[in-house]
Amino acid sequence: MSKQTVLGRVAQLAKANVHALLDQAEDPQKMLDQLIRDYASNITEAEEAVAATLGHLRLMEQDHREDVAAAKEWGEKALAASRRADTLRAGGQTAEADRFDNLAKVALGRQLQSEKEARTAEPTIAAQTEVVARLRSGLDQMKGKLGELRAKRDELVARARSAHAQNTMLDAVKSVDVLDPTSELSRFEDKVRREEARALGRQELAASSLDAQFEQLDALGDQAEIEARLAALKA
């Protein structure tokens, strides 16, 4: 997978409207589990792409440093050959002086070539550096959202289990026969209170909608969008 494709998927997942996805899901818990798997898989792929891109960038930077060093070295050799030629020419050794001047020209040619190679590599190095920075930024956002997804998934599962346990207990208590003929009124009152508590609990559970549960995730998506736009303005 190319780094461009990975970068696109990182940006897409980092900005994903999790709230909308969950609102449309028949089983939010399964949807969260699938999102977590998708995030983890794409984070792994993106990390590999970052590592490969970063490794290539470091090689280019090393080559650039070598070209810069070579240009400097050839410049020093050209200067030394030129000075030697001047000294020989001053002493009347014209032929030998010409030979050193030719060596200086060769060194200057090598210097020029090294400088050209260094300049040619600079735009590519700058572009690769930007790609690595964007990938790392997207990875940070994805890892943050993955942590939020896992926390919300665990919270949702815990709440569902708690609600199920409470309803099971209420159903069990409801079916118990106290076998006390003198407590008909008390048993009837207990039944009414259980039904009221059951209804109240279900009303509260229904009122606690997925919108409220995942409002923080939606805000995180907004924050990622703000950060992305700020990065675009700075670029």
Rank of each mutant, 00 (worst) to 15 (best):
N42A: 06
L205M: 07
A52R: 14
K72S: 13
A78W: 01
D67H: 05
A235P: 01
A158W: 00
A85R: 01
S209V: 07
T94R: 10
S114R: 07
N42P: 08
T124A: 10
A232E: 07
V132G: 03
K72N: 07
M60D: 07
L210H: 05
L220Y: 00
A46E: 00
A206H: 02
R58Q: 15
E96L: 11
L185V: 13
S183N: 04
Q12D: 13
D63F: 15
K15L: 14
L7F: 05
E115I: 13
E215C: 06
R83E: 10
N167Q: 03
G109V: 06
L205Q: 13
T129F: 02
D38K: 02
E184N: 12
K145R: 08
L233I: 11
E189F: 00
A160L: 02
Q141C: 11
A224W: 03
E184D: 11
L210F: 04
L185G: 13
D140K: 07
L135Y: 07
V157I: 09
K174E: 11
T53A: 15
K72Q: 10
R202D: 11
K116A: 14
A151C: 04
S208T: 09
P123E: 12
E148S: 15
E184P: 07
D140C: 03
V178E: 08
T5W: 00
K77L: 06
K234S: 04
L32V: 05
D154Y: 00
L205G: 06
G138I: 03
D67L: 04
K145I: 06
E76C: 04
F188N: 15
L7R: 05
Q24N: 08
E26K: 14
S175D: 13
S209R: 12
S82F: 08
R119Y: 09
L230F: 09
W74A: 11
N42K: 13
G55H: 09
V10F: 05
R119Q: 13
R153E: 12
S209G: 15
D140Q: 07
A14W: 02
A219N: 13
A14Q: 02
A199L: 11
E45G: 13
S137M: 05
A126P: 02
D154K: 07
A127F: 09
V132Q: 02
A231T: 06
R159K: 14
Q128G: 10
P28C: 10
A163L: 03
L149K: 01
A206K: 08
E115G: 13
A126M: 08
M1A: 08
L21H: 05
E155H: 04
L217R: 07
K72A: 14
G201F: 01
K116G: 09
K145D: 02
